[in-house]
Design a protein around this nucleic acid. Structure first.
Lengths: 210, 210
DNA sequence: TTTGACATGTAATGAGTTACATGATTTC
DNA sequence: GAAATCATGTAACTCATTACATGTCAAA
């Protein structure tokens, strides 16, 4: 259900074709809610069927066509209803933490590789998030530019502030993950230098116990 | 796919019936990978079909029956293969951050309610995580007790350390979310006291722009 | 004999992933 | 004429959610 509101929120910045949605999406909303094209196009269609969006078919070149999606009044209403209802709280489901809890089964080198992978991933995510945050603050972010152009300037500060707030949260999380993985890297050394081998064999046979 | 390894990891502490799995699950693995019973039972069956688990049917009372699941050698191998392969990195998908980025559409009171809900949720999660962490450290956690009983004591420290490490990550995340929501609470006051109303109407009509 | 814990699921639906499939237009 | 980008999806599958469904056993 969230994808629908992610798209509604994106399209509230101005009408776009499916292709533009997919491009803007990856540079903005995707940082908080990732989705592939194969999920975006069908959802846009569904939303227009349900009256949240209006489709305008636009000629493109000689034979080409594209669809431009506009948020309808019902769409804006749905968007406002969504932001004004308390969130559905979801419990965490992160494979990194799941795996971390059972690393006694891993050998030291795999743990190191795992932690390094984590650090690399979250570091490059962090770079991206910080860069995006900067383009929000200086108001050069393409989706933000479109958005602000249609809105009285009295509201600009607040719009930017909430987006920066969201990115601050994401940035803090990424930093945390990096720090955490670094501590994992330290931890594995203490065991490895103590000469502890991983649990290589089942601690009990696969025979049933009565 | 992760559910499978969550179950394998849990059952690596000793054989259990489906019911016991479901009970232990909610007190341990669920903190890193939540799943309802309706997902657990069928997955256990599938895993036994695929040879990762062995089922022993145990009589229970006069008419009752229960199934005890044992990790097979193939199961342990799969578990070890999983912890020794670098993780599939997944991009974030958190409705809280998604919503935060578009709070210019919300009215002040809804934002307050939202942030308070977030704080309440993560505070009670934090309490649970800290309590669980303590039972790991003093080694009274029921699943951990079962696990350690079957393993040479030389390995105990390391087993506990990785689990505590995982909980440390979760605890840090929960704290972060609370702090973040508190800053959201401050932010909404600055706008509300400035007398800014939410964007109550679409900033542009639903008419197509050429 | 009633309550609470024990025990095991199914069925329907929705959300998300992966891989594939196709063609037009613009720019070099 | 080739390459990049614009444009729009489908199909098959897996995973997760929600709601329901049913019965046993032990203890008070």
């Amino acid at each position: 259900m969230s994808l629908r509101f992610a798209l509604l929120a994106l399209l509230s910045s101005g009408a776009m074709t499916g292709y533009d949605v997919s491009k803007h999406f990856s540079q903005s909303v995707a940082h908080v809610w990732h989705a592939p094209d194969s999920q975006i196009y069908p959802e846009l269609r569904r939303m227009s069927v349900e009256g949240l969006l209006e489709v305008e078919t636009v000629k493109w070149g000689a034979r080409g066509e594209k669809k431009e999606y506009h948020v309808t009044d019902a769409g804006f209403e749905a968007l406002r209803a969504w932001v004004n209802t308390p969130i559905e709280v979801r419990r965490q489901r992160d494979p990194a933490f799941l795996k971390a809890a059972y690393l006694e089964w891993a050998d030291a080198e795999s743990v190191r590789e795992e932690m390094r992978t984590q650090i690399r991933f979250h570091q490059s995510l962090l770079d991206l998030l910080e860069h995006t945050r900067a383009t929000l603050l200086d108001r050069t972010h393409p989706t933000l530019v479109r958005r602000l152009a249609r809105i009285p300037s009295a509201d600009h500060d607040r719009i930017v502030a909430w987006k920066v707030f969201a990115y601050d949260g994401l940035i803090a999380q990424a930093r945390l993950q990096i720090e955490w993985a670094r501590r994992g890297l330290e931890l594995v050394e203490t065991f490895d230098s103590a000469g502890l081998a991983p649990l290589e064999d089942p601690p009990y046979a696969s025979t049933p116990s009565p």
